[in-house]
Amino acid sequence: MTGPAKHGVLVYSNNINDLAKFYTELFSLQITRETPELISLVKEGFNIIIHTPPIELPQADFNTVKLFMTVDNLEAAKLKAQKLGGQAFAGEWSNPLFRVCNIADSDGNPIQLREFRQ
């Protein structure tokens, strides 16, 4: 796999090295990228990104697993999510490759949306 994944799962952890060891040894995932904040694992096109929490989160509000999905348009996807009973959250972040924002599905599960730059 080259470049950032378009679909996968983010797993927040306060000890990314131990969690990466768990996944690599149990499921034979391969490390494709490693920084002090994240470790990216892949197997057969499936991507798990183990990431330190980006902000201090109260334990009661801490969701440790978050899907990430690529969409063509962040704004259109947020509106559609709301029409389908989901929730769109304020805030957007970007890097040179894509923009991201967060939504929740109709059951409240968190999802990161990614819109890749052309």
Rank of each mutant, 00 (worst) to 15 (best):
residue 60 A to F: 11
residue 35 T to Q: 01
residue 11 V to A: 06
residue 66 K to T: 04
residue 51 H to G: 09
residue 71 V to E: 00
residue 30 Q to N: 13
residue 6 K to V: 14
residue 79 L to G: 10
residue 59 Q to S: 11
residue 7 H to F: 12
residue 88 A to V: 01
residue 76 A to K: 06
residue 24 T to C: 03
residue 112 Q to N: 01
residue 11 V to P: 09
residue 17 N to H: 15
residue 114 R to E: 10
residue 57 L to A: 11
residue 91 G to N: 02
residue 75 E to A: 07
residue 61 D to I: 06
residue 85 G to C: 08
residue 41 L to S: 07
residue 100 V to K: 11
residue 97 L to R: 05
residue 38 L to A: 14
residue 115 E to T: 13
residue 97 L to Y: 12
residue 99 R to N: 09
residue 1 M to T: 05
residue 30 Q to C: 03
residue 34 E to G: 01
residue 64 T to Q: 10
residue 104 A to Q: 07
residue 97 L to G: 11
residue 53 P to Y: 06
residue 110 P to E: 12
residue 83 K to L: 08
residue 59 Q to E: 13
residue 8 G to N: 02
residue 67 L to H: 02
residue 93 W to K: 08
residue 59 Q to A: 08
residue 26 L to F: 06
residue 41 L to Q: 01
residue 34 E to Y: 02
residue 4 P to Y: 14
residue 52 T to L: 15
residue 113 L to E: 00
residue 116 F to W: 06
residue 67 L to A: 10
residue 118 Q to S: 15
residue 49 I to H: 03
residue 82 Q to A: 07
residue 90 A to R: 00
residue 94 S to C: 10
residue 86 G to Q: 01
residue 53 P to C: 03
residue 69 M to V: 12
residue 111 I to K: 02
residue 55 I to V: 15
residue 51 H to E: 11
residue 16 I to F: 01
residue 37 E to G: 09
residue 10 L to M: 12
residue 48 I to Y: 07
residue 64 T to A: 09
residue 1 M to D: 08
residue 63 N to T: 09
residue 83 K to Y: 14
residue 61 D to T: 06
residue 2 T to E: 15
residue 12 Y to S: 08
residue 35 T to W: 06
residue 68 F to N: 06
residue 4 P to N: 15
residue 35 T to P: 14
residue 84 L to T: 09
residue 76 A to P: 08
residue 21 K to A: 12
residue 59 Q to G: 05
residue 24 T to H: 05
residue 77 A to H: 03
residue 26 L to G: 09
residue 115 E to W: 15
residue 93 W to F: 14
residue 28 S to Y: 12
residue 65 V to A: 08
residue 104 A to Y: 03
residue 34 E to D: 05
residue 10 L to S: 09
